[in-house]
Design a protein around this nucleic acid. Structure first.
Lengths: 132, 132
DNA sequence: ATGAAACCTGTAGTAACTACAGATGCAAGG
DNA sequence: CCTTGCATCTGTAGTTACTACAGGTTTCAT
């Protein structure tokens, strides 16, 4: 023992900012750690592992609710690989939908922008196309 | 005259929901319309045109601030096509960035998901890869 | 022992709405 | 004329995932 660390260390180790860590605790995603006599939080390796999981998942675009679901499975010990895969695959579908939406958008915006000659007159095909 | 309409009509004509219309008014995006004696809002064609503009722009992913900027140009009469084009092109760049981020995400998620055999054991490569 | 840095709680702000609650207005049928 | 029921009114709180204080306390190195 003796390798416990403060919230500042946990923050710099994981790249998750301090207020976010406290927020995760309030939301029940990170368990409340023990405290010093003065009330400062003291974290262990297990917290580090868990927060790393959360950060990675957030980077992959999982919502906190999705992450909660996965963590519940892990915590409950009733984790089955197929359940986790379900969450992941569903999320993958969302990502693909979002990509295709944005690609449609890109096409439309490109078309609109290309109509504009970029001159100085108040006559603007972009504005016109949005109003009608 | 006499072709003014209520907020409910404006809502159904534009597909923008009633509380959103009131929200736009509060935000200064839609001007406050005249009222009946009882206090109900009465809209005209001009409001319809403007709200259509806002809805189209929102569908194209412009933020309310970007829309405000464009409307200010229109309202101020100091609209130049090139300024509007700037807003649009900048927005187009954002969309493209978002697409490429999501495509990276998609790749990673696909790779992670494919490692999972979907069986029932608590041994899960997805979880493992997120923890370490 | 002292002073700076880190930490504490609690609240409010962000974007763009949505969802009430509780009170009126309005229009049509009887 | 009066009632009934739908539309509308204001104002506030909730959503997501944080961030940014303010004002106070603890810790640690000198």
């Amino acid at each position: 023992m003796g390798k416990d660390f403060t919230i500042g260390k946990l923050s710099s180790q994981t790249g998750v900012n301090i207020e976010t860590i406290r927020y995760y605790e309030k939301e029940g995603i990170l368990p409340a750690p023990p405290r010093t006599e003065g009330g400062h939080r003291l974290y262990s390796e297990e917290h580090l592992r868990r927060l790393t999981f959360v950060r990675r998942s957030r980077e992959l675009g999982f919502s906190l609710n999705e992450i909660r679901t996965m963590l519940d499975m892990v915590d409950g010990g009733n984790l089955t690989c197929s359940e986790v895969k379900d969450v992941t695959v569903k999320h993958l579908e969302n990502v693909r939908d979002k990509i295709s939406d944005l690609q449609k958008l890109e096409k439309t915006l490109k078309a609109i922008a290309s109509q504009c000659k970029g001159n100085k007159t108040p006559d603007c095909p972009i504005i016109d196309s949005l109003f009608s």
